[in-house]
């Protein structure tokens, strides 16, 4: 299969040589793809603007020895302009694509692809706050990858909740009898918000107060980085003001 075609969302780009770029994409059918886009940094490039991060494109590639080569790109969804207009959305989208890049190291899936596109579209349309959209994306992305947190029943024994001890390493809330000494206790409202973000219950999420959102964001960040087994560089730049 020397030549193939797929839909893909651009995660990030790196400069290569004089005018080329290495484009990392998450595709619908081929998982994560790293490919060279030749000449895209020149102002006369025909598809440079379609291969910017947060863009969704119909791309045609041919298989190279180490990296594939992009021969054509047609825009399907252009969220970059709307996202960059709002700094909070831009920083949130940066965390999303960095997470998608790391979480699909062992191969992507259609669910991860659709989730990321949905999240970027939601950010571009300002459907919910940037911070809430980001936290919801992170929880759902981890769930798809097999690290679904539990916010009601005990993550270890399955004992019905509610529980308040939250242990990142154990996968969520745990019953008192298995909670390690000194395990942090979460406000029930924070757990409700986290469960709402995981389930996509936006009315509940939107009604949450700022203090609870801030606590939930800290939990999501810790949970994500623990399971990805590395820190997310973009996370420290997130603008939680919106």
């Amino acid at each position: 299969m020397p030549l193939y075609r797929d839909e893909a969302v651009v995660l990030r780009t790196h400069k290569l040589g004089e005018a080329d770029r290495i484009v990392t994409m998450l595709s619908r059918e081929h998982g994560k793809i790293r490919a060279v886009a030749k000449g895209v940094r020149r102002t006369a490039s025909k598809f440079g603007s379609r291969l910017e991060p947060f863009m969704v494109a119909d791309v045609q590639l041919y298989e190279g020895r180490s990296l594939d080569i992009i021969t054509q790109a047609e825009s399907i969804g252009s969220y970059g302009a709307e996202i960059t207009e709002d700094y909070a959305s831009y920083t949130a989208a940066s965390v999303m694509v960095e997470t998608a890049d790391k979480i699909t190291d062992d191969g992507g899936s259609l669910q991860q692809y659709l989730l990321l596109i949905g999240a970027l579209r939601s950010l571009a349309r300002r459907e919910h706050g940037a911070s809430l959209t980001l936290d919801s994306y992170l929880l759902r992305s981890l769930s798809i990858a097999g690290w679904a947190p539990s916010f009601v029943d005990c993550a270890v024994t399955g004992a019905p909740g509610p529980h308040t001890a939250f242990v990142v390493q154990l996968g969520g809330v745990v019953a008192d009898d298995v909670a390690p000494p000194g395990a942090p206790r979460l406000d029930p409202a924070t757990l409700d918000l986290l469960a709402a973000l995981l389930a996509g219950d936006w009315p509940v999420a939107a009604a949450s107060p700022e203090r609870i959102r801030s606590q939930a964001s800290g939990i999501v960040a810790a949970y994500t980085q623990f399971h990805l087994e590395r820190s997310l560089r973009s996370l420290q730049h997130v603008d939680r003001g919106a």
């Binding site: 940066s94 694509v97 960095e98 560089r233 973009s234 420290q236 730049h237």
Partner: peptide, 9 residues
């Protein structure tokens, strides 16, 4: 330029 993914704020 600001690029959170590259750690530039």
């Amino acid at each position: 330029a600001i690029s959170p993914i590259d750690g530039v704020g």
